[in-house]
Design a protein around this nucleic acid. Structure first.
Lengths: 343, 343
DNA sequence: AATTAGCACTCAATATTAGTGAGTGCTAAT
DNA sequence: ATTAGCACTCACTAATATTGAGTGCTAATT
């Protein structure tokens, strides 16, 4: 990232701040009025011309005002932006808006989404805790009928995964409970990869009696690992309306391409998975990602992680590139922190 | 519903069939060419004028062609329409596109949604089986940490509900398992309302030992009953794209009002709940419902129900009022039947 | 009496044109 | 180095004209 002298930075700053509010190209006259430098519009125009040469802003058409480019936003975020501090009062409000009692993790994640939605007016997304590296707490077999057995796997933090396996014979529930207990003895503190090995090796002695169940479980471990298979339980998407109210999406074609892009959750999942192991805030701007489907969008993400274990996921906020970063960044950050505490 | 002589019916029929395809007003010349009656456009116009008087069609503006009204569609569906029979081959295809092994009910319902989406190109919706009247199969307590206990409730058909309750003291997992077993002994074949009474009355003798757990369960029974609380696990909505591709929603305002209407799932839930106890197909046309949010939509619904028990829900298809009823109705019907078999 | 050809009329949709104004780049004066 | 002055660009808006599919009505036809 190139250096910019102070005068240039100030002009870029005001262009972006204004564009964030109005969503229309910003002209030299406006900047001249706003700027503390007390320069005439003509001078500002010179500065703008060279900011454009450096690639930070551009003109949508000859003789329009200037609009920030992706690198413009990037520079702004990295070098100019001062994020707002969240007041203690606001922090307390956010914390207390989580109503935990009687709620499983999924509900809590939805609460996070709604909170983000209310505060930011952009589109929140949440990736549920990954199950691959999370420790299993409990496995239970429940007989549904002659041929079908429900396997319930509870992961640390309270995330539950259900799978149905078909039995090789008609197990009695009592029998199943016995096997549940046996498995639960070896489960403690292992993730599914480790358990797979343990089951394959250690249970050999008497495994004939419930061989098909064990096989079923191992098979389902693989299903659980492939989180994409679980899309609807893995990625939660908040209200789209806020985004669609933004002026850049106020035409038919754009709104349709947006809906299409969000309907296939896999691209968003990929994006969030990039960051779920990493600390801190990550920001994707415009066409930075391979996610070329949609230009003009930015994504702010932060990961969360339970204190004791390895289970973690990430939360994010999708908005127009001209989003209010000063507010959005600390909000995403703080809600991720809250989730760490709660889970 | 008034009687219509054959000639009138034929004209109405062709107007609707054509409008279903083109989505634009149908003129007399076209009908004259299509009709087996061999009448001139002028005669058709006379017939159209009196169909309009009866309220089956209308002109969007003076000197446009005719468009069916809600009552027009209703008459068409009840008296003229001959639904397509689904061939054995198609039925077999549909059946085999369900991949049941290793899938819990939720996944199967999603498969139903995807199937409906592929076949119909409208927007499928599915209401998960109601839990209030479904029998409980299994209850399990799992210790998450000192203060939190996960309660897993498995309903017939394999639907699983998780709730977290906070404990009054630090239960050991072994202890919790004991209580699980005790509860499971009395559970069999009762729904949550019945169980509530049983728990309150019958377990009195030694309930002091896990009094708070029982209380927690009873409280959660009430939560489970209030299915609206579970929106995201109760109503599943399929791909919206198909609907948005329909020409009547090809402008910004309409598409936005549609999105808004679907974002609040409660209206759709109410609609589906009206029919989930009733046999057979139900069709809501245009502004028939109190669901005045959106005109120009129709909803086809059918209920499904597991054979043994009382647990049932419904599936539906939302499309423009000018939807292809001949195909959509038997498809919804057959998929509902398939669900009955599978669950 | 039922049907139809003929015709004037309506009105959405599309294309055409003109006018407006915010904003620019360049040049010459400060 | 800065700025006032000016001609120029181009999206946006409004006003106007054109087109054509479709109608209702009347009078002629079967």
């Amino acid at each position: 990232m190139e250096e910019l002298n102070e005068r240039y930075q100030e002009v870029l700053y005001y262009i972006i701040e204004e564009y964030i509010v109005t969503a229309s190209p910003v002209g030299s006259k406006f900047i001249a009025g706003k700027c503390s430098l007390n320069l005439s519009p003509a001078s500002i125009r010179n500065i703008m011309a060279s900011l454009e040469e450096k690639g930070y802003i551009y003109q949508p058409y000859f003789s329009a005002g200037r609009v920030p480019t992706s690198s413009g936003y990037k520079f702004y975020i990295n070098s100019i932006l001062k994020t707002k501090k969240i007041s203690k009062q606001q922090k307390a409000d956010m914390r207390s808006s989580f109503n935990i009692s009687g709620k499983d993790i999924k509900k809590i994640l939805w609460q996070a989404i709604n909170l983000l939605s209310e505060i930011s007016h952009y589109m929140p997304i949440v990736l549920a805790p990954e199950r691959t590296y999370a420790n299993l707490l409990h496995i239970e077999f429940i007989k549904l009928d002659k041929l079908n057995i429900l396997v319930i796997m509870v992961f640390e933090g309270g995330f539950v995964e259900n799978k149905i396996i078909s039995a090789d014979r008609d197990y009695k529930q009592i029998e199943l409970s016995k096997y549940s207990i046996k498995l639960n003895e070896i489960i403690n503190g292992h993730n599914i990869d480790e358990l797979k090995d343990i089951i394959i090796e250690d249970i050999d002695k008497e495994r004939e009696s419930f061989f098909s169940l064990l096989n079923g479980i191992i098979f389902n471990f693989d299903l659980v690992k492939n989180e994409i298979d679980n899309e609807n339980d893995y990625l939660f998407i908040g209200s789209r309306m806020n985004l669609f109210d933004e002026p850049e999406f106020s035409n038919y074609e754009k709104i349709k391409s947006l809906i299409k892009a969000f309907e296939d959750k896999r691209t968003i999942i990929k994006l969030l998975e990039l960051t779920k192991r990493k600390e801190g805030i990550h920001i994707f701007i415009g066409s930075d990602t391979e996610w070329s489907d949609i230009n003009g969008l930015s994504v702010i993400t932060a990961s969360y992680r339970s204190k004791k274990g390895f289970a973690g996921g990430s939360i994010g906020l999708i908005g127009p590139s001209r989003m209010n970063y000063a507010l959005a960044i600390p909000t995403v950050n703080y809600i991720a922190k809250l989730l760490c505490d709660i889970i």
